[in-house]
Design a binder for these strands. Sequence first.
DNA 1: TGGGTCATGTAACCTGTTACATGATTAG
DNA 2: CTAATCATGTAACAGGTTACATGACCCA
Lengths: 186, 186
Amino acid sequence: MSLRLSLLGMLSSHSMTGYDLKKMADNTIAKFREAQTSQVYRELNYMEDIGWLTSVIEIQTEKPNKRIYSITPTGREAYLEWLKESPLDEEKLNVSVFLMKTFFAGDRSVKENLDIFKQFKQACQRKLAEIEASFRELAEFQIKLPEHQAHAPYWQLTSNFEIAFYNMCIEWADKCVKAIEIQGAK
Amino acid sequence: MSLRLSLLGMLSSHSMTGYDLKKMADNTIAKFREAQTSQVYRELNYMEDIGWLTSVIEIQTEKPNKRIYSITPTGREAYLEWLKESPLDEEKLNVSVFLMKTFFAGDRSVKENLDIFKQFKQACQRKLAEIEASFRELAEFQIKLPEHQAHAPYWQLTSNFEIAFYNMCIEWADKCVKAIEIQGAK
DNA sequence: TGGGTCATGTAACCTGTTACATGATTAG
DNA sequence: CTAATCATGTAACAGGTTACATGACCCA
């Protein structure tokens, strides 16, 4: 789903071939979501079927012909709607999807971006609170299963990771807000 | 795959039903990998087919009968092999798989754990170096596509995230090593 | 002469998700 | 009376991965 929308996002600034999209994805969003060639072509077919894209074949003599995809108004609408969704509208806080959207955030207004990053921060703070709660649950679980003693210290390490992760996200979100404010002031 | 191995890991300390496994997964590894009931049963069937598990039906009168799964020696071997693999043996550094394994790290020796966490740290350091390289690639990409000016500051934010993430991982790995050393000294 | 780039895709498979189905007991 | 708990699963679908197939041109 999010690969689909990312391809759409790339096509929203340029018409391109599947081949170009694959290369662009490798250079940009690959860290959050890899794009297999086969999946790229499948998604393009699908989006053409549902009317988000149209394609034209360009005949070349020295090189293989290429099929150039362009976004349609319906496609652009779908893309902007996806971008607009805040991390709270999505069923759960999915950080890698959030990062993919950040990659396309230039297609949102500065105000929208400020709001979204602030919401993201709050969502992370709530996550931290949840982790504390599940910490207690895990402790109860440990009491019920005393034979798991050897495992307990490592369970703690995974909880520590989560806490460090969301704290990092919060700090990052703060820095993003500042950066966007400076950008917006220009 | 990693859900499969996680279920196997849980069964390696206790024989349990699918229902128990689902509950246990919800209480423990759910943050890294969710387990749908349907998938749990499918994986159990599959692992029984390939000889990693056996099952016995326990007839109950007041409650529905239950099918209790037990790990076989082949299954235990497969589990320990999976656990032993360092983050470098796996094709790519997958942090959430690493965390799942951390959850089961009590089934590895203290020495193995120390090695693995040190290797994890090194892998993260290498990732940081890669990010710097891809930073430059992204910059080139921007030069080629000057119309992407509005996007550039947000691309920067995603790179910042990655850097913060791997730095956090490195710090966490250091703390883990210290914690394991203290634990091992007992 | 061998590997990289350009350019398209198909087929099969694996994993994960959603929705559906059943039914008794027990606690509030 | 109603919701939760115990306990099992199937079917269909969606999304991502792996492997395969083709073929010309260009550069070292």
